[in-house]
Design a protein around this nucleic acid. Sequence first.
DNA 1: TGTCCGATCTGGACAGTGCTCAGATAGGCT
DNA 2: AGCCTATCTGAGCACTGTCCAGATCGGACA
Lengths: 208, 208
Amino acid sequence: MSTAAVADTRPYHHGDLRRALVDAAIRILEREGPGALSLRAVAREAGVSPAAPYHHFKDKGELLDAVAHVGWEALGVAMTDAKARSSAEMGSMLTEIGVSYVQFSQDHPALYRVMYDCSRDKDMLPEGIQDKEDSAYCLVRGAFKQVAGDEVADMDVELATIAAWCAGHGLAEMSMFKQFAPLKEAFGGEEGFLRAVLSHLGMFNRKT
Amino acid sequence: MSTAAVADTRPYHHGDLRRALVDAAIRILEREGPGALSLRAVAREAGVSPAAPYHHFKDKGELLDAVAHVGWEALGVAMTDAKARSSAEMGSMLTEIGVSYVQFSQDHPALYRVMYDCSRDKDMLPEGIQDKEDSAYCLVRGAFKQVAGDEVADMDVELATIAAWCAGHGLAEMSMFKQFAPLKEAFGGEEGFLRAVLSHLGMFNRKT
DNA sequence: TGTCCGATCTGGACAGTGCTCAGATAGGCT
DNA sequence: AGCCTATCTGAGCACTGTCCAGATCGGACA
């Protein structure tokens, strides 16, 4: 096959295989779930031999890291949008951001799982993900600082941010299980349920 | 047979292999982590052929379900203990339960992960796990009801319980990442950090 | 322009996995 | 005793992640 490759879909030295592989992985993730995400399946989806990915990623984990990176970017965009959308009414900002976070996890459950599973030890992650996660984290903390005002200590803002992030992540994971179906119905769907739960987080410290 | 028929699974000619397999799995989990938990490795650890487990579990997932079942039982015990230990000072009960939950996840991270990963759809879980999870869930709800008193609607208690569970699970997962190391130090270790975060959950709804 | 180098890609191979199945083994029942 | 059934084994299938020797091609250098 020495000629006629010009107009064909694949130029045999792929233009940007790295990118194509990440795209293929995300496509498989959304279509068939995390269980179907094998390196060979990704190569197959990209129309390339099973060994080809190894010229762009050290191993499967590194591919997953790249996928996670894309995920964190998308989540950051969603949360930034939510913040912007709610800036008019200050008090609801945190709720809007929280809802957008959980909503993202519901819209892209497989991708969301990869974002947290991709590496055992987050300190070892390539800085890309850390950055993005960090930037989303900073976005939440910034919102807290705005809402809390000046009378609150920095440490409290920090802890509240962590607490909110944990609550969001926990709610995101729990919402993937179908257990809350009746409650969701009672609150007029997914979003209503999320808002209701979010608004009850304070009860944890209720004084008697 | 006068031992109250404790294990309903009848013993057979090579011992109680079902139980031995679950134990072997947990041993591998604690020793080498979830990545090393293959069905063949479990069989190897139990000193049995790779096909033997299939006479006691339909597939790998069913073994994992059995492992998760043991995990939920242990978690239930830990939380019940924490509740009993704190009953003197009512206000701290929820915090104590929460701390014991997160502590358990830190003490048995691999087991904890299996407890939530073992099945895609929690509604499809064998009733054993559902029961245990349910019973732990009821324990938390009961504590909330005690703390909140009578003036609070049942629905609010329900939502608060869910919120607390989500927060606990989120904190448990987040704490597995090493990112909070400096903060943990600032609060005198794991437990101090947990208590601090837990006590800040209410800030999520701070009014401005 | 022609030649060669190094990055890219392939086919084949290896060990390990989940799972199935025909047969071996050995308790417990009549 | 003799059978029956649950239990266990070994071989084998399709799949996986990973590595390797070689094929192929783009672009730099002559």
